[in-house]
């Protein structure tokens, strides 16, 4: 407790030297909300530009739409419906920090899919929390088990400010979140599952039909096991829709 008192005393000396800063910060005037919003917008646009240019190149050099075996087109409403399933999920970032997803908003644009995740982050040990907005690129992957899932690749976390000075007192928590590797936080976020499965092994039940008219006969065909190997070759995004292109790499029937 003594060391605590020493620390607080030191701080008081520092605060004395910067007394005017204390007043300004409490009023919240030091935080330039507009600059923060511009920085966020710049990051979103840079990513969009990069992805869009890459997709334009892919589409120019490839007859994806004509030559791909399985094409899934999912509307923005469809993707939003998957994302809605994540609302109210509460999980931990570490043993002291938890988050609750308030809402995920998906926006499919030419070249990229963005997700804006409204969340509340809470430092359980101190009982303080803050609302944050996380910006993410949405990436679809095909897992080994044949499940198609959407993952969030975070590229920005901002405090959600409704009026200036609102996060004073929680700034330490916010800084703590912002200092982390975005990828690390992204890994902690839940994935959403697209209700589309590409099973690798498909049993095909044999038949047995007994015909009692003349000629009487029993017709049988054996059980079979089809093994498929599919690959997600492209995830492309257009205004209001996502296109997942799968190629059938291998088929065997036993």
């Amino acid at each position: 407790m003594r060391s605590a008192a020493v620390l607080v005393a030191c701080c008081l000396i520092v605060a004395g030297a910067f007394g005017c800063a204390l007043v300004r910060e409490i009023a919240g005037v030091e935080f330039d909300k507009e600059a923060f919003d511009l920085a966020r917008q710049a990051k979103v646009l840079e990513l969009h530009a990069e992805r869009l240019a890459r997709q334009a190149k892919t589409l120019a050099n490839n007859d994806i739409l004509e030559k791909t075996d399985f094409l899934f087109l999912i509307s923005e409403d469809g993707v939003q419906a998957f994302a809605d399933r994540l609302d109210s999920i509460t999980d931990t970032l570490d043993d002291q920090t938890s988050y609750t997803i308030r809402h995920v908003r998906v926006s499919l644009q030419d070249g990229a899919a963005f997700a804006t995740i409204d969340a509340h982050v809470n430092a359980r040990g101190y009982g303080v929390g803050i609302d944050v907005v996380m910006d993410a690129i949405l990436v679809f992957t095909l897992r080994e088990q044949g499940v198609v899932e959407g993952r969030f690749e975070l590229f920005n976390i901002s405090p959600k400010i409704t009026k200036e000075g609102i996060f004073l007192g929680n700034e330490e928590l916010l800084e703590n979140i912002l200092r982390r590797e975005l990828a690390e936080i992204g890994r902690k976020l839940p994935v959403f599952q697209v209700p589309v499965t590409m099973p690798g092994i498909v049993p095909i039940k044999g038949t047995r039909v007994e015909v009692i008219t003349r000629p009487r006969f029993v017709l049988t065909s054996p059980n079979r096991l089809a093994r498929y190997r599919l690959r997600l070759v492209h995830s492309l995004f257009f205004d209001g829709k996502a296109l997942l292109a799968f190629s059938l790499e291998e088929i065997t029937v036993e």
Partner: peptide
């Protein structure tokens, strides 16, 4: 970024417009 988007977007947009999805999902099997 806006300059890059303005240059790359038209070709992508035309292809996207041709892909009609009237419901949540569309599956095309070749």
């Amino acid at each position: 970024a806006e300059k890059v988007i303005a240059e790359a977007r038209p070709s992508v947009h035309i292809i996207g417009k041709a892909l009609m999805v009237r419901r949540d999902v569309q599956l095309r099997v070749r």
